[in-house]
Amino acid sequence: MSSNLAAPPATPANGFDPGPLRNAARWHRAEYAFWVLPVLAYFVFAENLSLLSQIAIAALFCLSLDLILGYAGIVSLGHAAFFGVGAYTAGLLAKHGWGDPLLGLGAAAAIAAATGFITSFLVLRGSDLTRLMVTLGVAVMFYEAANKLTAFTGGVDGLQGVEVKPIFGVFGFDLYGKTAYWYSLIVLFIMFCLARRLVHSPFGLSLRGIRQNLTRMPAIGAPVNGRLVAAYTIGAAYAGVAGALLTQTTQFVSLDVLSFSRSAELLLILVLGGTGRLYGALIGTMVFMTAHHFLSGINPQYWQFWLGAALVLVVLFARDGIMGMLQRLHAAGRKAP
């Protein structure tokens, strides 16, 4: 295309500092501090390693929803479909002799991604309500299919006989859940770093553009459908890896990996934590799982009451979730030191 505007892509105008955008992707001090927490947790809560692993896995799952909802703006009530596909992929492989964990993760990511790619075309069109119903419907179909195919999945009894081999042939999964925790945490961290690159890239910027103004994007030359398909596929792959981690660390696949409540709870956690921020997904999961643990200890039957109350308060008074509140506090603290 010819260069129309007399503006050569030369030096920016005098005195202008493009720094804030140039350096937007740099790691903040608070981020380093944040990632020290799970390492500390290993020593402080050494008796609760299985809970910590669950948190890491749920955080990865929540991250996957944040990519498609928080960035691309696709609402979903059926994200457990991909989590379940990943969980069964890893489980079936391990049951039939391919128990290498990394192979399981890779296969789960690939199959979940393929599932995401195919179903993405159903969510391209339509309003948020349509998307909620379509994603819900797809997930319900997966659930019932797994329920029915008992010979294959074990149905409601779950998939038994999952035998996961040591990681790299060296680190076996132990009774205390030490290997499981480090494994989950390292996978979460790597996947997080990849997601972080992605959201700060031009591709990530275009996803934010789609979420903020869907109708403007084609008018600046962006193929919206292609981007949405890509984002949905990536989100599905992430969910698949999370599902595979759950299978490998528990050596079992329960039918509820595909359940509606898993999808709904995930949406709730993400909104609680704050959408479109990556750390919102992580912090939301930490807060939710910890609250779940303690509140259900105090009152096993009614603990969800407080969860409901927290959700209502967040949606009414802090729409950008816990992470949004933290950011506003930080900004306010800077203004009035």
């Binding site: 955008l21 937007a24 690159r197 700060h200 890239s201 031009p202 591709f203």
Partner: peptide
Amino acid sequence: LGWKWWRPVGAHT
């Protein structure tokens, strides 16, 4: 650059 996902926007000077 819309499909580039590795380098941050800030690096596309």
